[in-house]
Amino acid sequence: MLSLSGGQARSFSTGTAALGSAKLKGRSFLTLKDFGSDEIKKLLWVSADLKHRIKQNNEHLPLLQGKSIAMIFEKRSTRTRMSTETGFALLGGHPCFLTSQDIHLGVNESSTDTANVQSQHTGGPCERRFSPIINGLSDMYHPIQILADFLTLQEHYGSLHGLTVSWIGDGNNVLHSFMMTAAKLGVHLKIATPKGYEPEKSVIQEAQRLSEKYGTQLVLTTDPMEAAHDSNVLVTDTWVSMGQEEEKKKRLADFDGYQITMQTGSVAKPDWTFLHCLPRKTEEVDDQVFYSSRSLVFPEAENRKWTIMGLMVSLLTDYTPKMPMIKF
């Protein structure tokens, strides 16, 4: 076990005025590493506001009327595509779905020229590829997933500050995004990965810096039970990502003992919950946990839509939430 930093999460007071002054319009969204605490909180606040106004109040909000977005996907997708398409359309905009086969990205013309042309036709491209502008997913980061995860936890616990999230699984792009975000929200992070599957060293170094700045705990270990101990939230993801299919047999052997079960949760806090970004395999988490009342997986999946909507509204407009600021 390597405890990189520790201590009580320091309370950083953020008022409505401070979040309201966070400027997001026109920004690119590649990684949450580029966004400060107030900016991430504003994205979550806008997302919660849109969800409340549209889902609860049944309001019609054509905030993106007359705008369009190019959705360029090099990797297949279910939740990212559906949440972006339906969300953008619900706000009055027009989503354009394109695969690399549709536009032969980087073949007939350079990726830079394609991006410049697309920007003339749309409000901005949302790309699920390797050099994105709005990052729907890349090999290094998956930032839109983390917005959905933290909105889900804020809704469930009423506040994020002081929570402990335990990641048990692969040191992948989703984990990297957790590491770039948790400390900024006052969240402690424990990470259990098998040897050889640790997160990138540069990401560890940045996460250590953030934990020291915000007074949160960052722990890296190879023991899933150690990571789960006294945790509020247990999180995992696929052990075999797209493009790693040939490694499946070895990976399943290397991750033996990492399946999240009720036994894993027995050492967590009494109010522990479970997250998984989907699609899920039973070797990662058993049915007893996945379909239990502790599982927030399906609210998490729904919040992919509301957070991508909050992100697009924030990057394309000067929208200010109407509901009171949510508690962080």
Rank of each mutant, 00 (worst) to 15 (best):
C277K: 04
L275P: 04
G257R: 03
D286E: 08
L315K: 05
L185D: 09
S293Q: 14
G243W: 07
M309Q: 12
G186F: 01
G215I: 04
G169Y: 02
S3T: 13
A301V: 05
S100Q: 10
G93V: 01
K41L: 15
N173A: 06
N232E: 14
L98I: 07
K184I: 00
E59D: 15
K269L: 15
H176C: 05
L210V: 00
D223V: 00
A182Q: 07
Q118E: 13
G7M: 03
S83R: 04
L91S: 06
Y258S: 08
Y197P: 01
I308Q: 07
E39H: 03
P324T: 09
I146D: 12
F150A: 06
I260A: 06
S292N: 12
G169R: 04
I103F: 09
G310W: 02
T273V: 15
D287M: 05
E284F: 03
I260E: 07
L315N: 09
M325A: 13
S77H: 05
F178T: 00
E198H: 14
L275S: 08
A192Y: 06
F29V: 00
L311Q: 07
M312Q: 15
Q101M: 02
E85H: 07
T164K: 05
V219F: 08
F328V: 07
Y157L: 02
I168F: 02
D256W: 00
M309N: 06
G186P: 03
A22I: 01
A228C: 08
D223S: 13
K322M: 12
V117H: 06
S293L: 05
V240I: 15
P321Q: 10
Q154P: 04
S292F: 11
N108Y: 12
A228H: 05
F29P: 04
T78C: 03
L275G: 07
H156S: 12
I326G: 08
V313M: 12
R129P: 00
A182G: 11
R81E: 13
P321G: 10
C96K: 14
F12Y: 15
E198Y: 09
G243R: 04
